[in-house]
Structures are given as structure tokens and as C-alpha cells.
Amino acid sequence: MIENKYYQWYVNIIQNAISQQRVKKINTYEKHHIIPDSLGGLNNKDNLVLLTFKEHFVCHHLLTKFTVNRDRSKMIFAFWSMSNKWGRKNTTYRITSNVYARLKEEVATLISKNNTGKSHPVTDETRKLISESKLGNKNPMHGKAAPNRGIMRPGVGGRKKGTAWSESERVSRLIQRSQPGYYDYLKNPQRGKKISESTKGRLGAADGKQWVNNGLVETYAYTCPPGYILGRLPRLQTNKQGMKWYNNGTVNRQFKDNLVEQGFIRGRISKKQ
């Protein structure tokens, strides 16, 4: 403890409050430990004083100014706690932005210092317990289909549909994928076997579905909706219109009448033996 000006201000506020012989009133005074209980102060009449809300707040602020080392750390955390709940209890005083900012920085520094060098490793036993707690019926998603099953993502990487890759993204991805060994995992035979084993006996997303159309659009469904008929919409191959089969005695090819290559004659060669 340092007996500086802040200590003297603290003493003056306490002595002034004691001299007034205050009586506890709701929404007027709060009890304050003259020597904080976290610093060894007793919870008795001689160590308690009634302070106004503002005096109480200021005293806790002053305590951070004349305490040192571990005692100061305790006072900073106590003042931080009071600062965060102050607005919920009282409206007669507000902490300033500068005070809050300085206090926030000191609290963050203390937390960082207290945690430096500490580690909280997860043991294999703990990992096993966590895993077992999510198995089978204990998992809330057990036996349920994924909520996004059958729903197409809006775009590449979840982007809004129509969003293009930026040039920097393209370069970044190209560099990443061009690194030696990037695709080696695809060559692992165990990977293919594992995927195969995991899908055996499982119903596919298309099992039981069939194509239906209403003359304008087509879709994949288990049952034919009203206004739809079975089958897909016809594919109009405009690039094939007007083309006929020709052959040169070895292969069959399609040409338009005015674009037949030399050596080809009308008709197809049957490949049936």
C-alpha cells in the first residue's frame, strides 16, 4: 500500500461518511468495507461504512491507485466487476469511456499474465468420454437426415449464387493446389476402401425417385405431383439438326449434306457381328 494522494482522498471520503453517522436507506447508501475483505478486512461494524453510490464507486476506483502487486490485481478485478454491473443498479453515475478503456486494458493484461505458462491438455481418457457421450441415441442427430440434405449450396464455397472468384482468391487457390503432394490423399487406396465400406447398404439420395415434368420444368420426386407426367423434357439438340449418317467403310460420322468429307458415302456401317 502506498500512502499517496489517492490514499488520502480515500481516507477523507471514509472519515466524512463516518462523521455523518449515516443510517441505512434503500436506494441511498451502500455498505463498503474500509479494508476490503479480499485484503483481509473483517466483516464487522468497525470495518463497514455507509457510502453513497457515487462515493462507493469512487472509493473502489481509488483502491486501484494506492494498492500494489497482488492486492492491486484484486482491486482491479473488483472495480471491473462493479463497473460492469453499475448501470444495471444505479443511474446517478456513469463510468467515463476513458476510465473504462484503461480498466479494460489492465484487466486484459492481468488475465494474460495469470494465464501465461499454464496449459490445460485434454487427456485421452477425457477425449474418450467426450466421444462416448455423443454416440448413438446420445447424439441429438442420431437417425435423422442432415437438415441441409438435398439443398444445393448457393454458390462456390457458400458464396451468393453468381458471385465470382476474385483474382487474389484464384491466385491463392492455384498456389495452394499446385503444392507438391496436395492431391496425394486421393491416391491412397485405403481412402477409397473406407468410402466404399461406409456407403454399403445405405440408401442413396436418388433411390426410389423418378423424373417428372409439367412441360416446362422437370424435377426428381418420389411421387408424381398434380399437373406433372412421368419422364424428362425432350432435349432439343439444335447442333444435330439437318445432320445425316455417313461412313468411309471404317467409321461412321454425321455430316450436313453440304459438308460431307471426301471418301464418305451415305449410310452407316453395322457393327453387329
Rank of each mutant, 00 (worst) to 15 (best):
K160S: 10
K161L: 06
A164T: 11
A164Y: 08
A164E: 13
W165L: 14
W165N: 14
E167G: 09
S168C: 09
S168M: 10
E169Y: 04
E169S: 05
R170T: 07
V171H: 10
S172K: 14
S172R: 13
L174A: 15
L174Q: 15
I175T: 14
Q176R: 15
Q176W: 14
Q176A: 15
R177W: 14
Q179Y: 11
P180C: 03
G181I: 00
G181C: 02
Y182P: 02
Y182I: 03
Y182T: 09
Y183C: 08
Y183R: 07
D184G: 01
Y185K: 11
L186Q: 08
N188R: 11
P189L: 00
P189R: 01
Q190Y: 12
Q190S: 13
K194I: 11
I195A: 15
S196A: 10
S196T: 14
E197V: 06
S198K: 08
T199M: 15
K200T: 06
K200Q: 08
G204Y: 04
A205R: 12
A206E: 13
D207Y: 10
G208M: 01
G208L: 01
Q210T: 07
W211Y: 07
V217W: 07
E218S: 10
T219F: 06
T219P: 01
Y220S: 07
Y220G: 01
Y220I: 03
A221P: 01
Y222S: 15
T223F: 12
C224Q: 07
C224K: 05
P225N: 01
P226G: 05
P226W: 00
Y228T: 01
L230P: 03
G231R: 00
G231D: 00
G231Q: 01
P234V: 06
T238K: 11
N239K: 10
K244Y: 12
K244Q: 13
W245L: 06
W245G: 06
Y246A: 00
N247S: 05
N247P: 01
N248V: 03
T250W: 08
